[in-house]
Amino acid sequence: MSEQIDERLRTELQRQGVWVTSMQDLYNWGRKNSIWPLQFGLACCAIEMIATAASRYDIARFGGEIFRPSPRQADLMIVAGTVTKKMAPQIVRLYNQMADPKYVIAMGACAISGGPFKQGYNVLKGIDRYIPVDVYIPGCPPRPEALLHAFMELQSKIDSQKLTGAHKAVHLDPKQPSEFPVPTFGKHDLEPPGNPVVFQPPKIER
């Protein structure tokens, strides 16, 4: 498994009609072509997500058309829209309830940073304060093509995940957590305001 077959030998064999693969490639091939997103939307980005799932943009071409209404059956969480502080604990709880392996796409300016509401009092400054995000899509709202691009980026990320070794995928590592603490409603803000395990603001040298 860890010993990769030589690429040139593989193409040569394929030319002769012999198809060779590794367990890892087979596993990732199966996973990346049937990603089931969790069906929920938070704001206007959700309309673009619906458009992406509908016939004109057709996310089914990439195997992601099965939107599941239950977190237990979903692989991917598309955080489409503004996450208010009142909504954030529910989002984290839904993420915790998803079965491994699970991925998150933060769609739109609000989901990645709070967007136009960043300096406001009731909008979370990005969902990556509480849960790990795999792909960020900027835009307000991003076009369906952007979501498809993010989806393909996620597919290539899944394709590159290792089955064994030191750099194996997060969900295969027993030491990596699968659940993250759910913030509670505090007197002035969510408590804690961020999860330092997941998110650390960039330090700038001035």
Binding site: K86, Q119, Y121, N122, F185, K187, H188, D189, P193
Partner: peptide, 16 residues
């Protein structure tokens, strides 16, 4: 939320 104690639209509100 119910636990919130400030009044955020007041002019002297200071966000955390």
């Amino acid at each position: 939320w119910d636990e919130f104690q400030d009044y955020p639209m007041r002019k002297d509100y200071r966000e955390p």
